[in-house]
């Protein structure tokens, strides 16, 4: 056998130094395929159901849209709070609940819900929410309920309605939406890692990426990391870091796939959310 070929065979066989640890690689691959990396075989999503609602059972469509909207409660109530409620969280929550209720019992919204790309969906939801809020506040006013403090601009909003929409909020709403997507992806990733017995994947992500980037804390030192998670070699630690990054990306994509129609739209939306965040001014929620 030629020397080089023989060396390669030895390398392969010996699982040398971890880099050639095929068992580990297989486990890693198995982990990915077992815990939700569905590659590009796009699975049926709630939003797919909503899109198809014209031909599907309307109740199923309403439920799907209702679930989706509940997922984005932080972004939607942020918009309501800032736009209509003078930062009154309680009123924003009330309006949001009423909005969800309207989706669940009415046919109007789900019947219009056909946008297929991320920005179209965001625009659709924001417009629907905005119009709903105006209608609802007008109804409250008609019922002679005292408008809560902080909505002094109600009359003006009622007067200008859609025209006002163009100059207030879309960018802020997009930022709130992007935050919501990231938060949901992180929540799902942590849950997924802990439920699948891969706490080390979440741990490495949390201590080397999430907390250092978002909270500004120093990354957990390498020596502490390997002690805490029992890594046998740098290759193993490196592999887990790689798995963690892929898993976060996978969850980001899955969250986005809940409101877009296909994988091309997922890619486009992920890029767009990144751009939205990178260019946003830094108002926090």
């Amino acid at each position: 056998m030629p020397e080089k070929r023989r060396s390669k065979r030895i390398l392969r066989y010996l699982s040398f130094f971890g880099e050639y640890d095929w068992l580990w690689a297989q486990r890693t691959l198995a982990g990915m395929s077992n815990d939700g990396n569905r590659g590009h075989g796009f699975v049926t999503t709630p939003w797919s159901l909503v899109i198809a609602a014209g031909s599907l059972d309307e109740e199923a469509g309403r439920k799907a849209l209702g679930e989706l909207v509940r997922l984005y409660k932080p972004a939607l109530t942020f918009y309501l709070r800032k736009k209509f409620c003078g930062d009154d969280e309680h009123l924003a929550d009330e309006l949001f609940s009423a909005f969800v209720e309207k989706i669940l019992v009415g046919k109007e919204l789900v019947g219009k819900a056909h946008p297929r790309q991320g920005h179209q969906f965001r625009q659709f939801i924001m417009t629907a929410l905005h119009r709903f809020a105006i209608t609802e506040l007008r109804r409250l006013q008609t019922l002679k309920r005292q408008p809560p403090e902080g909505i002094e601009s109600l009359e003006r909003l009622l007067e200008y309605d859609g025209a006002e929409l163009a100059i207030i909020g879309p960018a802020d709403f997009d930022v709130a939406w992007a935050r919501n997507v990231v938060a949901e992806a992180l929540r799902r990733m942590e849950d997924d890692c802990l439920k699948s017995g891969r706490a080390e994947v979440w741990g490495v992500f949390e201590h080397r990426l999430r907390a250092p980037i978002l909270d500004g804390v120093p990354p957990m030192p390498y020596a502490q990391l390997i002690q805490r998670f029992g890594f046998e070699s740098p290759a193993q630690a490196y592999n887990v870091l790689g798995v963690a990054k892929r898993k976060f990306e996978q969850h980001l994509r899955e969250v986005i796939s809940g409101y877009v129609a296909d994988w091309n739209s997922v890619d486009a939306e992920l890029r767009e959310l990144q751009v939205i965040l990178a260019h946003a001014t830094n108002a926090s929620q």
């Binding site: 992007a178 935050r179 990231v182 992180l186 980037i213 978002l214 965040l277 946003a280 001014t281 926090s284």
Partner: peptide, 13 residues
């Protein structure tokens, strides 16, 4: 996530 600097969120992605 809701308090973080938006550029940092973009960096995380």
């Amino acid at each position: 996530v809701y308090k973080a600097d938006t550029a940092k969120l973009a960096q995380l992605i």
